[in-house]
Computed example of a mutant assay.
Amino acid sequence: MLGLLVAGCGDGGKDADKGKGSDKDAAAGAAVSAGGFPVSVTDCMGAKTTFAAAPKKIVTSNAAGLELLLRLGAGDKVIGTGFPPGKGTLPADLDARAQQVKVLGKTVIAKEKLLGSGADLYIDTFASMGGMGGGMGDAPTEAEFKAAGIKHVFLKSTACAADRKSPVTDLSAVQDDITSLGAVTGTSGEARELVAGMKRTVGAVQSAVGSTAESARPTYFFFDYDAGTKQPSVVCNRQVAHAVITLAGARNAFGDCDGDFKQVGWEDVIAKNPDWIQLGVRDRGGEAANKAAFDEAQKWLRDNPATKGLKAVEEGHFVRIGSERTTIAGVSNADTVREIAKTLYPGKVG
Rank of each mutant, 00 (worst) to 15 (best):
V235E: 02
R320M: 11
F318T: 02
G182L: 01
G86H: 11
S332N: 10
V32Q: 13
S166Y: 06
F145S: 00
G118V: 10
G133T: 03
G203F: 13
T201W: 04
K146C: 04
I270A: 12
D11S: 15
G249D: 02
S61C: 07
G73H: 07
F318K: 02
L194R: 02
L155Q: 06
S172V: 14
G280F: 03
M1W: 03
D138L: 14
A52C: 11
S188K: 10
F294Y: 12
Q278T: 08
L104A: 03
V264S: 04
M132H: 11
C160M: 06
R192G: 11
Q239K: 11
A28C: 08
K57T: 12
T125Y: 14
K24V: 15
M136H: 14
A293P: 04
K348E: 05
K77T: 14
H242W: 07
C257K: 06
Q231T: 15
D170H: 09
D163Y: 13
D256G: 09
S166H: 07
M45C: 09
K342L: 05
D93F: 14
T141Y: 07
A74T: 04
G149W: 10
T60N: 03
G228M: 05
K14I: 15
L114D: 00
G347F: 08
L69E: 01
V6Q: 07
S180M: 14
E190R: 15
G65T: 05
D138C: 05
D226V: 03
I79H: 06
G228W: 03
G255L: 02
G149Q: 04
E142M: 09
P85K: 09
A139C: 06
E287D: 13
A27D: 10
T89Q: 07
T187H: 09
D76F: 12
A271Y: 12
D163H: 09
G35P: 01
K57Q: 12
A54I: 09
D258E: 12
K24T: 15
F154I: 04
D226M: 03
G137V: 02
K57I: 13
A30D: 14
A98G: 04
A292M: 08
G182F: 00
V234G: 00
E296S: 13
K113V: 14
K146N: 05
A341Y: 01
T89K: 09
A64S: 11
V349P: 00
G249Q: 02
D170Y: 08
G12I: 15
T169R: 13
C9L: 15
E144P: 00
T60H: 01
V39T: 05
E324Q: 12
K113E: 09
A53Q: 11
E214N: 11
I245A: 02
R192N: 12
N304T: 12
S211W: 07
R200Y: 03
T343K: 10
A329I: 07
K113D: 11
E112F: 08
Q100S: 13
G259N: 05
H242A: 10
L247H: 01
V313D: 01
C257I: 11
A159I: 02
K48L: 09
V153W: 01
M1E: 04
G137E: 05
S233Y: 15
N62F: 05
L69D: 01
G80V: 01
D283Y: 06
A143P: 06
F37V: 09
D260L: 10
G255R: 01
D120M: 05
P140S: 04
S166C: 06
K146F: 09
A64T: 15
I328S: 07
F222I: 15
D138M: 13
F83P: 00
L344I: 04
C44N: 06
V108I: 11
